[in-house]
Amino acid sequence: MAHAGTLEIKSLSKQYQVKGEPLPVLDDISLTIKPGEFVSIVGSSGCGKSTLLRLVIGLEDEYQGEILLDGKRIVGTSLDRGIVFQEHRLFPWLTVEQNVGLGLLNNKEFTESQKQKTIQEHIELVGLKGFEKAYPYQLSGGMSQRVAIARALVNRPEVLLLDEPFGALDALTRAHLQQELERIWAAEGITAILVTHDVEEAVYLGDRVVVMQPRPGRIKRVVDVPLARSRDRGSYAFTAIKDDVLSEFGGHDNPRQDVVLVDDEAHNWQFAW
């Protein structure tokens, strides 16, 4: 079984070419994430937080600086890093268990029976026992996102990346899945990086909250969250940290409405849990 990885990001910068002009997206990002740590990255739209995850997962190359996992430079995608996107990205022609098994196709460490076993374990881990044969169209948004989490974890990666995983879910489902994610993270003992624009989510889940600011994307501040788990969202200490993080979004450079506490886009019309 893989261990939790150490992720080091050193002076990372990234530009896109827009109409021949270089447009800086990320500027001099440095961040070290300890094995088993949960780091939340929060920032308004366009601060490059998703680009940062795409670089770490290996979907984008061409950057300045270094991204090291356990001291080794990241080149391309690899089974030791898993990711959950905002959209579940399940394959509609495959059942839940086949979707979860997608990641095991090129996994040489497991035998066929081990693969079956780990698929089943991960379906149970995300609480979808009994839905193995269901197709994505039969699942609610929250259930689909659970499958996506299982799929990301099935290779037992060292790092789990989460790119606004609950952004499209309704508030109730989101709160519930945040608890579930905390449980899963603790159970797997994995290093996790969560990108979100929801400050409460960032504080609820993170050991540290990295606040980013846009144009170009930089780290503005890193806020420690020294609260015992599982955290009480209504407690004074929780609210104080949340307000502290929110205060970073007060400047006119960053209009506060860019950050949403609870965003009520009910994309999810199905009954979800």
Binding site: L59, S78, R89, L102, G103, L105, N106
Partner: peptide
Amino acid sequence: RDHIEVARIFAYTRRQVFTRV
């Protein structure tokens, strides 16, 4: 493209991307 990216993340070869995605 989203599905292709999922396949890339799981290190699928070009052939696997074609037959499985």
